[in-house]
Amino acid sequence: MLELKGVSYRYAGYAKAVLQEVDLTLADGEIVGLVGPNEAGKSTLCLVAAGLAPASIKGALTGTLTIDGEPMAGRKTHELASRVVVGFQNPNTQRSGIAATVFEEVALGPQNLGLDVPEIVERTRTAMALLRIEAIQLRDPARLSGGQAQLVAIAALLAMRPRHVILDEPTAQLDPAGTRLVGEALRQLAAGGTSLLIAEHKTDLLDGVCSRIVAIDGGRIALDGPAGDVLADPRLDALGVQPPSRVRLQRAIDEAGIDPRTAAAAAQAMAAVA
């Protein structure tokens, strides 16, 4: 379990805290979606939950980060790496720059953990298979499309087999097929007991994979509840977050006064397409 309790965070040199009194728990095997308008504090929350702030990004943190029952205060980032990882939205900045092939890029994390070669190879192959990127394993990571690079970046994190995964807009550069692929991979991870926090503007992805949604605004948690309830909550619109297509379709059906049986058939059709 990953737990943030009473967390406030202020970047060095800033007068105002970006996060204020945030309480958030990720249970094992739970996928939590994080939504909110721009500058709401989503990325900062991801950095704090991963232990990067303030360990690597200087600032003032109050409150506690606890992972699997152990407080993480004062831990170095590399000590957290086997427990929690965080992926950023730009895959190019996540490329190590020292790997000649995609395989080596994905293998870098397990290598850094000091694992034996057979274990490194097994983890790397499994992570690549999960995101179906085996076909590009011998390609130069610097010469991939944005979508391929994003899948490689996620595979590189998953190869470390952390108990907790935090992803900041993991599908920003992915097409619908790639987004579905990532969604499937995340569901498989959660089924294995990994907890996930996904900050994402694409609420359709969150609607498909998350059991819970947390909406953040002005550094404070505004909404927190089951995915179906929060994504259909009109207050989400007020925060500037577009509800998923399913919810928008349902609202359109309601507004048009279409027969509920027809609406149910449409909802079923939507679910099948999703």
């Binding site: 990067l52 590399h78 086997s82 190590s96 080596e104 870098l108 994390g109 850094n112 000091g114 994190l157």
Partner: peptide, 24 residues
């Protein structure tokens, strides 16, 4: 900015961990 993000991404992947790593 890219250098900063890249160093963070490397830290996440335990690059700063002391000790040797097995090469492939």
């Amino acid at each position: 900015t890219e250098v900063e993000e890249r160093s963070l991404a490397l830290e996440v992947r335990a690059f700063g961990r002391p000790g040797r790593r097995h090469l492939l």
